[in-house]
Amino acid sequence: MNESKAKADLQRYLQGARDALVWKLEGLGEYDARRPHTATGTNLLGLLKHAAGVELDYFGQVFGRPCPDAPPWVGTEGEPNHDMWAGADESRADILALARTAWAHADATIAALPLDAVGRVPWWAEERAEVTLHQILVHVIADLQRHAGHADILREETDGAAGLIAGNENLPSGDAAWWAAYRERLERTAREAEGR
Rank of each mutant, 00 (worst) to 15 (best):
I141D: 02
L10G: 11
L113A: 04
P172M: 04
A129H: 09
P68G: 11
P36L: 03
W23H: 11
G29W: 00
L113M: 05
W124F: 15
E127I: 08
G87Y: 06
A102S: 15
R146E: 04
L137E: 04
T76L: 12
F59N: 03
W23S: 09
D89F: 08
A106T: 06
T42C: 01
A129M: 05
G27M: 05
S91G: 08
E3P: 04
A142P: 00
A102F: 07
R128Y: 10
A142F: 10
T189E: 14
G60L: 11
R18I: 07
D152A: 05
V74G: 04
R92K: 10
T40V: 13
L44F: 01
T42G: 03
L113N: 04
A97V: 05
A111N: 11
H50D: 06
Q135R: 15
G195T: 14
D57E: 13
H37M: 13
E55T: 08
A151T: 03
P114Q: 03
K24F: 01
V62S: 07
S4F: 00
T38E: 00
V121E: 06
D89Q: 14
P72Y: 07
A180N: 05
D83E: 13
R185E: 10
G75N: 12
A108D: 12
I141W: 03
P66D: 12
E127H: 14
D94L: 05
A93C: 01
W124N: 07
D19M: 10
D143N: 15
A176F: 03
A104M: 05
K7M: 07
N170K: 12
V62N: 07
G46S: 03
E26V: 08
A180K: 12
E192T: 13
V74C: 10
L96F: 04
R191C: 06
V140L: 07
I153L: 15
G41H: 06
T189N: 04
L154R: 02
R34H: 05
A99W: 15
P66S: 06
G60V: 06
G64Y: 06
Y13G: 11
E187D: 12
C67K: 02
P80D: 08
L115I: 09
F59Q: 09
P68S: 14
G27T: 01
E30D: 15
V118T: 14
A190P: 00
L171I: 06
H37D: 01
H134E: 15
